[in-house]
Design a binder for these strands. Structure first.
Lengths: 226, 226
DNA sequence: CAATGTAGTTAATGATCGTTAACGTAGCGA
DNA sequence: TCGCTACGTTAACGATCATTAACTACATTG
């Protein structure tokens, strides 16, 4: 819960305030296509949670990141837990639906797998903070939400497993699931990675993922078994 | 509370003794090769930090996990931060030294890469809690330690980059570094993964990692450039 | 046997944090 | 203009947490 020492908190707030918030208009109320306060807060919180962990970020830090202060957050969310809940269910739903959408009407299994890889790579490169939070703070979630997120995750992995099994029917389901997890780990490494420019990075990850999944289809990979 | 001090102490010691602490002799002071209290605490803390994050775990939780209660921890560590510091510098050193040891006197680059993969796979499967903490709570570290850990990490990745560049001289250093990060992500996915039995899992990860790194050496992988 | 060091205990302290209360203000429709 | 709503603010509350203090049991050593 507590960020180390007073020093660290001070440093945090200084960094936050002096941070040139880069994007988004200084507007606020969702007038045009502008980002609403809610979305501003969610995005800022995602960035903070990704760097310091859910318990390492205070309500005041989140507020400060969008220029309002502390408890003003309760005008938009039921609480800090609710923010995390919305964040994680949101990302899990987007992943699942995106994955399904890219595989349903793709009869060729190999093309479907390729589409799945492309989808996850794009998502991970575009939403690296969300990916980190997703991996990191799931256990900080209160019970109703946690269950839902785990269900969505399971469903997403299932899409991968099904597609992979169609491409490699010789794999056991266990092996396919472990392979899917491994490749997701590969692609999700982007937040920690020294990045190339986006297109190079995307190509590299795509190629590595496909090789990891398919490269030794026709070699003497004896122990894959039923 | 009505129970008096003697009672409570007795109860505690009874629980300690009767606790099926799985491993380790009921010794304590690091006489033989037995696990000392310090090591017990570090290992329990690693497990807890991995699941709940550094800020999500209290000093009392850590104590309770080894059968002592709360502040007794200060007999062994300077504080909670010191525990995390020791944990993370320890793992980083082990990784770096293990990696170096397995590559220095291995003239064949491909064999060296293979050894590196085998080393990291074994480490990740054996110490999955440490791997998780390592990825997750580095930013919860106080400054002197954080810097040291980052340096060790950089060194370890450098071992990977050097070895990989010897195997694939056509890669740019940037690409090699990104590839190393990606493969480490693949192998580090084990804590989140539905695991096979250890030998199957080890073989699978090994093969996927090598394929990710090497599979398209001789294909039309156009954009790898200098 | 006395002295000492080690490894525990409970209780108290001070800081931090999430949440709530009480209050202010600008915009807007009747 | 009146009152309502949306969106802020600061101050206070209660819980939690890391850390320290004060004290106790026990083994080892002189």
């Amino acid at each position: 819960m507590i960020v180390n020492v007073a020093m660290l908190t001070l440093t945090n707030q200084f960094r936050l305030v002096s941070d040139p918030m880069s994007n988004e208009t200084p507007d606020g109320t969702g007038r045009g296509g502008a980002t609403s306060r809610r979305e501003q807060l969610l995005s800022a919180a995602a960035e903070l949670f990704a760097r310091y962990g859910f318990h390492g970020v205070g309500i005041d830090d989140i507020g400060a990141a969008v220029g309002i202060s502390g408890p003003a957050l309760y005008r938009h969310f039921r609480g800090k837990d609710a923010m995390l809940g919305e964040m994680l269910t949101g990302i899990s739903e987007r992943l699942l639906h995106g994955g399904r959408a890219r595989t349903v009407d793709t009869p060729d299994p190999l093309a479907a797998l390729e589409a799945l890889v492309a989808w996850h790579v794009e998502f991970a490169l575009t939403n690296s903070a969300l990916i980190t939070v997703h991996l990191r703070d799931l256990d900080s979630l209160a019970e109703p939400d946690r269950h839902r997120v785990r269900e969505l995750q399971r469903g997403y992995v299932e899409v991968w497993v099904d597609t992979l099994l169609q491409c490699r029917p010789e794999l056991s389901e266990h092996t396919a699931r472990a392979s899917a997890h491994a490749v997701l780990g590969l692609i999700n490494s982007t937040p920690h990675s020294a990045r190339l420019d986006p297109t190079r990075m995307s190509e590299l990850l795509h190629r590595m993922a496909m090789n990891a999944l398919l490269a030794d289809r026709r070699n003497g990979a004896g122990t894959d078994g039923v």
